[in-house]
Design a protein around this nucleic acid. Structure first.
Length: 132
DNA sequence: CTTCTAACA
DNA sequence: TGTTAGCA
């Protein structure tokens, strides 16, 4: 079976994130890794899920600094609760993501229009009706 | 061969 | 980010 720890090469392979990016994540304080006697980064299996979540947040448009603030709030309940303005930032990000979702749905509708018309030669979408 | 850091044809 | 250099 797979070991409980892995080095950067395997974490990169398992997450699809480049080793370069993994080291960058660490510089930004997004992930942590202990070092072997030789100075090589050593990750435990939970790092895979951690990197996946970071990627998820990055793809949603959050910058590394926001992600860095957000992550610690997931591990355990901060003594005193999440920072006051952090909560505000997250609400703003949430609204932005809602906007992205709307645009994605609209984009999908446009693709569906083309896909559907290709299946049914009946009508032509938009004005692109030059089907040779 | 793999990883590390630092830096840029 | 990629990629490369020079080590360990």
């Amino acid at each position: 079976m797979s070991e409980v720890t892995m080095r950067i090469g395997e974490l990169a392979r398992r997450t699809g994130v480049s080793e370069r990016s993994l080291r960058y994540y660490e510089q930004q304080g997004l992930i942590s890794a202990r070092r072997t006697a030789g100075g090589h980064r050593e990750y435990d299996v939970t790092a895979v899920a951690a990197v996946d979540r970071i990627q998820c947040l990055f793809s949603a448009g959050l910058c590394s600094s926001k992600i860095a603030e957000l992550l610690p709030c997931m591990r355990s309940k901060e003594a005193g609760g999440p920072a006051p303005d952090l909560l505000h930032n997250l609400a703003v990000e949430r609204e932005r993501i809602d906007g992205m979702i709307d645009r994605l749905l609209a984009s999908r509708d446009i693709l569906d229009e083309v896909i559907d018309s290709a299946r049914t030669p009946s009508a032509a979408p938009g004005e692109a009706a030059r089907s040779r």
